[in-house]
Amino acid sequence: MNLFLYLDRQSPVHRLDPRTKLGLLLASFLSAVLFVTPVPLVSLLGVLLAYGAVGRALGNLRRIWFLLLSIAAISVVSWSLFAGGTTPLFWRVTTESVTYGVGAALKIDAMIISGLVFLSTTRSEEMVLGLIRMRVPFPMAFAFSLAIRMVPTIIGTAVTVTEAQRSRGLDTESGGPLARLRTYVPLLVPIFLHTLRNTDQLAKALESRGFGARRERTSLLTIGFHGRDAVALVAGLVVLGLFAATRILSGP
């Protein structure tokens, strides 16, 4: 089972320079934090889905739909109850609090989808190259990409450990909060120790493959700015500008 998000495909987004894609990621985050109301955030989501479709990355949505849905549900329910407002709907819920909850849900999901498109279309090695060109030292850039790569590895370990403990009769699915907390110990200890041991092994393997042997490192992959990067960046700036203008014109 492959837990990594990168999709090895040909698409205009795949061909963009990683720095361009980082720029677009940043622009999308900025656009998202500008708003609290649902309408502009829905349009932002639309733009991001279109971007993802061009990058042929939307297939990965299937793998995280549950996450997106749970975050949306938690956000809508909790903000509806606690955000407060002036137009009562029922019980403690107000029109404003529901609107705020929906807005917050859209905002977080938009950011996750934007991150998903980036990871689905960018190899971690390209990201490292991009960061190096942005004057991030190689060891730091590599550590950053490795941290992202570690997530699926740890999830894989977690799946195996959970299966192993369920085979011994551990019920990971029912019980109250306290009982649940107790079930986490037999899961977390092996996951943690296994990850620690892997990290130690990885450090030795990296060193024996010459990691850090030379100041100047070469690369099999090449990156560079092309016309399409200029087009993408301009488009990203225009969209960000439009959102910013909307925000300013709509008042505080």
Partner: peptide, 10 residues
């Protein structure tokens, strides 16, 4: 990855 670290030509 290894040859890249050693600065081998692409």
């Amino acid at each position: 990855f290894g040859p890249e670290n050693l600065g081998v030509h692409p």
